[in-house]
């Protein structure tokens, strides 16, 4: 911890655009409690006024300032300088999974297009608007998501294999889970999960869970239960047989409030 010292740190920040670029080094004076975003702002004010950085709240609530700090996807507003090794340059690069616009700003518009594929909340007919806090708790975990897209950035299906057309990514499994497990929702999104969001491509390496700044248990609490729903809906041999016999159109798996 650098306690009120006059020490400097070196930030090695990617400068460039979609044509390419190179990192540039900046010396920044350290201030107690400083976070990486503060250091980037200091560079903007004193050295590179056109350094492109997205940010809004600077309090970990809006999810705008995502970047890769020393190779790890982080919110720069929550990454303390004194938690990083300061004897070497701190590298700050844009999220790799998305196309660079300029410097640390990437084109994340794909995420907004994926979101549109997910059928919205649909209350069951005749719903009485009462809910038990215990049922709500489970869904509130998913609704903590601040859409920083760090989970998307780290997910190898997107990052390394670039399957943006076939795969929705952890963020949108969390979003789908928040709707599917809403105590009063009546829609089924199993079809969308399987075909549009390609949930089968996830092989549960839990990288997304590790980087989530909101500590959402993405894999265990969202993705795995959703995978089970898809399996129940499309691959359960007994259910398939029953369905054939009854020629039921669209049964809803796990109708109870709690279990899936």
């Amino acid at each position: 911890m650098v306690e009120g010292s006059f020490a400097d740190a070196t930030l090695r920040v990617f400068r460039g655009d979609k044509q390419g670029g190179t990192p540039a080094d900046y010396r920044v004076p350290l201030v107690p409690g400083m976070v990486v975003l503060d250091a980037l702002h200091s560079i903007q004010s004193h050295q590179a006024p056109d350094l492109a950085v997205r940010w809004n709240c600077k309090a970990g609530k809006c999810g705008s300032c995502s970047a890769e700090v020393n190779g790890r996807p982080r919110l720069t507003c929550k990454t303390r300088m004194d938690a990083l090794p300061l004897d070497q340059p701190i590298t700050i690069f844009p999220m790799k999974a998305f196309p660079v616009i300029k410097d640390l700003v990437t084109d994340v518009s794909w995420n907004f297009r994926v979101n549109q594929k997910i059928p919205p909340f649909q209350p069951r007919p005749g719903t009485e608007w009462k809910m038990d806090q215990r049922d709500v708790n489970r869904v509130q975990e998913f609704r903590k998501c601040i859409e920083c897209f760090l989970c998307q950035d780290v997910c190898h299906v997107l990052r390394d294999h670039g399957k943006l057309e076939q795969f929705g990514g952890p963020r949108f499994f969390v979003r789908t889970a928040s709707l599917e497990m809403h105590p009063l929702d009546g829609a089924s999104r199993a079809q969308v999960l399987k075909n549009e969001l390609g949930i089968g491509l996830c092989n549960i390496t839990k990288c997304c869970t590790e980087v989530c700044p909101e500590d959402i248990h993405i894999t265990d609490n969202a993705i795995i239960p959703l995978k089970e729903r898809v399996v129940d809906e499309f691959y359960d041999p007994l259910l398939m047989l029953v369905r054939k016999i009854r020629s039921a159109k669209k049964p809803r798996p796990g109708g109870e409030g709690h279990g899936i």
Binding site: P120, K130, V136
Partner: peptide, 20 residues
Amino acid sequence: VRELEQWGALFDRTDNGDIL
């Protein structure tokens, strides 16, 4: 507020199951 709830917002609840 009720409208927000009907659009999917999940507020904290009272013991009765209403919005806290």
